[in-house]
């Protein structure tokens, strides 16, 4: 997951190389340049996925993407997203149970599909009694697609959309500008399907890419969009700020599928570092030899 950082560490290791001649220098420089060029020219390979990236697989038709167990999901890469409690100032705010959620993303030309799956031994699908709370999950997107609002429900001037599902009451689309400010967006365009099998919930959220109204994220298929995830365990009476939540990730929709400007910059920096350290090393060796 930390491909960019790994590359950086690799560059540093050439410090230990000794006995490099001027021919080797030229080769090293050429190699380093090739790395930079390759990064810019080719999509990164799967295991070189950037930190916080959720690859979005483009599919020509929706097929059964809307189904939590749909075959169309087979080819989609899974990202294991670690979760932790938000420590919100509500009773039990630091006591959450879900530790990670598997996230997959796919799109057609019209719709975005997100499949979330997490371990939960028993489904809590009722809010029909005073002490029952439903299992729930949410996807948070910035209202303005390019921005990255504060992770805890955004802020007044940088708001978030929340696609919210719970096992008792279904789906809601919400708008928030800071904790406690959530309001419902009327006639939500978000659809969900959920299933609890074995000891896991699997929920598919989907929505048309384009938004038809103000304050609802307009997903541009050519541009990455930030996303964060949250899960509530009903059995543990989790609700509100008592939830397991992720950091900001991003759905990589941009032209450089699987790669980003951020990643390219890191690769480029790594390449330059390789060239630079090689030069310094060779120069050092030369001086030591008294050339």
């Amino acid at each position: 997951m930390m491909a960019a950082d790994d590359a950086g560490i690799g560059g540093d290791e050439s410090d230990d190389d000794s006995g490099i001649g001027s021919r080797e220098l030229a080769v090293a420089a050429a190699l380093a340049l090739a790395v930079v060029a390759a990064t810019a020219a080719f999509p990164a390979v799967a295991d070189a996925r950037a930190a916080y990236e959720i690859p979005v697989e483009r599919q020509s038709s929706a097929g059964d993407l809307a189904e939590p167990t749909g075959d169309a999901w087979t080819s989609v890469e899974t990202v294991d997203v670690p979760m932790s409690s938000t420590g919100a100032a509500v009773p039990g705010g630091a006591e959450t149970t879900v530790e990670s959620v598997r996230v997959e993303a796919a799109r057609t030309d019209e719709r975005l599909y997100l499949r979330l799956s997490w371990s939960d031994p028993a489904a809590n699908a009722s809010t029909d009694s005073l002490r029952s709370f439903a299992d729930a999950a949410a996807v948070q997107l910035p209202v303005s697609a390019e921005s990255q609002p504060p992770i805890a429900m955004g802020s007044t001037d940088n708001r978030v959309n929340v696609w919210y599902w719970n096992a008792a009451d279904g789906t809601e689309s919400l708008l928030a500008g800071g904790a406690g400010s959530t309001t419902r967006v009327p006639e939500s365009a978000v659809e969900t399907r959920a299933t609890h099998t074995g000891d896991r919930w699997t929920v598919v959220f989907s929505r048309s890419l384009a938004s038809d109204r103000a304050n609802v994220t307009d997903v541009d298929p050519d541009q990455d969009v930030n996303a964060a995830f949250a899960v509530w365990e009903g059995a543990n009476e989790e609700r509100s700020g008592q939830k397991a939540a992720s950091e900001w990730y991003y759905l990589s929709l941009g032209p450089n599928e699987g790669g980003t400007i951020y990643e390219t910059v890191l690769w480029a920096l790594a390449g330059i570092a390789v060239v630079f350290t090689t030069l310094v090393t060779v120069e050092g060796v030369r001086r030591t030899r008294g050339e």
Binding site: P91, T127, L130, R239, S240
Partner: peptide, 20 residues
């Protein structure tokens, strides 16, 4: 209200009620 029931817990006289 989103039915979180913190008020039900928080009132020591138990005079807030949850409507299921």
């Amino acid at each position: 209200c989103r039915g979180y029931r913190y008020c039900v817990e928080g009132c020591p006289y138990k005079k807030v009620f949850y409507n299921a």
